[in-house]
Design a protein around this nucleic acid. Structure first.
Lengths: 136, 136
DNA sequence: GGACGTTGGTCTCAAAAAGAGACTAGCACT
DNA sequence: AGTGCTAGTCTCTTTTTGAGACCAACGTCC
């Protein structure tokens, strides 16, 4: 059984030590499952810039359904990342804005978004390579 | 229409300026949609520590189905974050390990994981508060 | 004054994704 | 000979998501 050539942590243990993670009651999963949705990061990114109203967000993210927009906003609100305020205009308008907690989350999250933007070519190249080797 | 009280960017524009995002062909979405899956970050976190075999990962993440484990690993492999190597043992064993690209992604990603761990109490508190105000 | 647009949703139905569990093949161990 | 290990795949059911109609109350246009 000489498989395990290099079994030492790749990252500094202080930065992110998952060894103590309780898989059945994992705080990281509990938090991440919510923000890992298809639309969550997108909406957080938009609201990190400025507050938006429901219809503005719908226009900003054209291929989201109203159903998912409502649901995602509710989820983000429930977890405390955004606030919802109704204005008694006619018809009533609703504004969504980021909370301090949301901004605090978006700080590290924006780093990942930036990574994605920068490394998109590498990922696309990897896909091409994989697909080529697959059809062989 | 005095809704828009504070419409200036919340974060430093240099860090993450989404203003130029093309929603119809967005690199960030293209990359993130893959790693935003329920299991992706968990597997990346595990493989960031050390290489694992299929069965080891299954035992490490008990509530993942074999089907989703296979599929998620394939997706991560296709995007170039992990490598798959088959050893001609009997029965054959398969080892998964992180690539340099994967490690480069996991660096900012681990910051988000850390945030989740640290701020889990705040999120749970926000949920309680929301649920209380809802049933009123 | 009646048709139409606007607001922020909800409701229903269809499609896609995910979960549960049986099944595979070849070999080792008992 | 029976059992278990390996890394999956296949099928079936349940959950999630998407597409689109519908809502009520008001403003505007003609």
């Amino acid at each position: 059984m000489a498989l395990n050539a290099s079994r030492k942590p790749v990252l500094d243990g202080k930065e992110c030590d998952m060894s103590g993670w309780d898989m059945d009651n994992c705080p990281v999963r509990d938090v991440l499952d919510r923000i890992a949705g298809k639309w969550s990061t997108l909406l957080l990114g938009a609201l990190a810039r400025q507050p938006y109203r429901f219809g503005e967000l719908r226009r900003l993210v054209p291929d989201i359904s109203q159903r998912m927009l409502t649901q995602t906003l509710r989820d983000l609100q429930r977890d405390g990342y955004i606030e919802r305020e109704v204005f008694p205009t006619k018809p009533p308008s609703v504004e969504y804005r980021m909370t301090d907690l949301g901004r605090s989350l978006f700080e590290p999250l924006s780093k990942v978004l930036l990574w994605a933007e920068v490394n998109h070519p590498s990922v696309k190249a990897a896909r091409v390579k994989y697909d080529e080797s697959e059809l062989a």
